[in-house]
Design a protein around this nucleic acid. Structure first.
Lengths: 352, 352
DNA sequence: TTGTACGCGTTATCAA
DNA sequence: TTGATAACGCGTACAA
């Protein structure tokens, strides 16, 4: 279908080499007559020549591709990150293989295997997290790293390894969110976390604790609750239960809740409303993530804004740097500081 | 890094051919001793052998890849479609190249060019639409088709060509939505469309008209308004203006509005509320698309539900069929019928 | 200024 | 039951 260099050579009665030089803009280096160039260019056009990247890749041992592995495609989170990734990668001349692992680490391992067979120049992985207690197996990631294929993690990392990553500064985000609540006068601040064993969740919890400690507020274990995740229905049921528990604490009832993510915050908001109390008057709420829908719900959520497209851009810049300059061996551990977006659910500016 | 067949052959003192047969499970066809198989498998494992897809692709003239070109990455629409696409394609053994054209048809043409150089086995394109009046250039698509590369369009099509497509049945969706409003007793039903020249928008308008005609309601041109798009701010400003116009019609003021998409409906809802009227009591509203946020806004939207993941799945099935059975030359023109999701904004079940 | 020849890692054909 | 060899399309060192 698409003509080959060979065919052009035959048509023009020139050698394959000459044609190759001209079509790869190396004509100047060698010195090829203007006339020949023109002829070649013309017949290339006429024959509809299109360079064959797979042959080129085989020869050059470089594919100009980046493999992307994401846990899931739901929501808008992945979307915005990919938007950042693709804008940088295309600009730098890389194409993207997209793989979704659907929260299944065996699928993740399979995809990574496939990407290796495709000889991608590098990989960006948002890896599958696992519930607390389950044993995660990240051998496939370590192996990639060991084999010297540029690899970078996004949004969560693997502590104790030297794999590059770009994440949200979850600790700082949580710290700021809780500090904001403290400044609004709250002392009984709860945290709803989630039954997942990953760095982002952990660091949000740590940020919460540190903010309280720095403000001289004692940490109350009763104020830290964990909900199940996975199925969305479980999350909802669990959040409702947690809110009910909080409300039965009467005098000790928290006046503010910082949640591990916007999804939990939205269910909490609903649960509070349904129990006859209101947000933020009775209980203030701060989420984490800044999903699109968070601004649109009945009580628009105050949230920590994950810098999603920035994450995508940064991670890609670093990966490409590592691809193109293999001599750089420093481990990149980047945490981007998120901003707090103040809307209604925290009660800032409202009477309390 | 990763070993080659050659290296395994040397290590085992066997021939390249033998090794290839064994590692590609063709050992039975030829008949290779169990012992040899074992030896080869072992050393392959030890050497960390990984088949090289790019070499394989070069030889077999098939890459096992599908190119995806989407106009934009915003919202959740693309997300759900991709979810459908990737689940089918991965199941069938194809990997995905993802390209975003950002509503820029030159970028789109560029991406398609790149995909051709990468020798993708087929392409799925959600092409850039253009504002009414601008001249769209779809030569790059026609050329792909002409060159015999399997190509299928999603969500919108190119009338007058024989390019396969899978779309939402926009006409039927609009027809049902408007008929629903008519059944609720409305006669003054407006439609807000958008200044884009693409089949889906056109067909929604046509569906709206047909529903009115079939119910014996005369079409009032004053009830059909167009808003600009592109920048979200323009949309908002235009929708507010249109609503204002409707409200000044006094006795002739529409009692219901069917909008071209959920985004417009949400702005309309806001505008109506801000002008002191309410949805659905004063004006009923039906959107098209079913974005996630549409269920969460203050007055949950009644919408036509675009079957996004189904679109993705269907389009991929057809594409792969066309890839693997080139003898099939019938043109596939699939329109999937969407369902109406009744929530609050249409006033069904509410007193009016 | 142009041509020859080899290699990238596979698969496939034909011999042995 | 196994091995030698020729493609696939391209890039490049070297020769002419």
């Amino acid at each position: 279908m698409a003509a080959t260099l060979q065919e052009i050579a035959e048509k023009t009665k020139l050698s394959l080499t000459t044609v190759s030089y001209i079509l790869n803009n190396k004509a100047d280096d060698v010195g090829i007559s203007e006339k020949t160039r023109h002829i070649v260019r013309q017949t290339a056009k006429n024959l509809g020549y299109r360079s064959n990247q797979v042959a080129r890749s085989l020869k050059s041992q470089k594919t100009g591709t980046i493999g992307l592995v994401f846990t899931n495609a739901r929501g808008t989170f992945m979307n915005e990150i990919i938007s950042g990734i693709q804008s940088v990668s295309h600009q730098e001349g890389y194409d993207l293989f997209l793989c979704i692992s659907d929260d299944d680490w065996e699928k993740e391992a399979m995809h990574i295997q496939m990407l290796r067979e495709r000889r991608v120049d590098g990989m960006i992985v948002f890896f599958v997290s696992c519930r607390k207690g389950e044993k995660a197996n990240h051998d496939h990631l370590l192996e990639v790293k060991k084999d010297g294929i540029p690899l970078i993690l996004i949004d969560r990392y693997l502590p104790g390894t030297d794999i590059d990553y770009v994440v949200t500064d979850d600790f700082a985000g949580a710290y700021d969110a809780v500090t904001h609540l403290i400044k609004l006068g709250h002392k009984k601040i709860a945290h709803i976390t989630v039954l997942v064993d990953c760095t982002s969740v952990q660091n949000r919890l740590e940020g919460y604790k540190k903010a309280l400690i720095d403000a001289g507020i004692e940490i109350n274990k009763e104020y830290i609750k964990t909900v199940d995740c996975g199925d969305d229905k479980n999350v909802k049921a669990d959040v409702y239960k947690v809110i009910k528990d909080f409300l039965t604490m009467e005098n000790e009832r928290p006046t503010a809740i910082f949640t591990v993510n916007d999804g939990v915050a939205m269910y909490a908001s609903k649960a509070i409303k349904e129990s006859g109390l209101s947000v933020p008057q009775d209980i203030a709420l701060v989420g984490f993530g800044n999903f699109i829908e968070s601004a649109l719900v009945e009580v628009p959520l105050t949230v920590v804004d994950q810098p999603k497209s920035e994450l995508g851009e940064k991670v890609t810049e670093i990966l490409i740097q590592k691809i193109e300059q293999p001599e750089l061996t420093d481990v990149k551990r980047i945490a981007i500081k998120p901003k707090l977006i103040i809307r209604d659910s925290c009660g800032a500016g409202n009477t309390r």
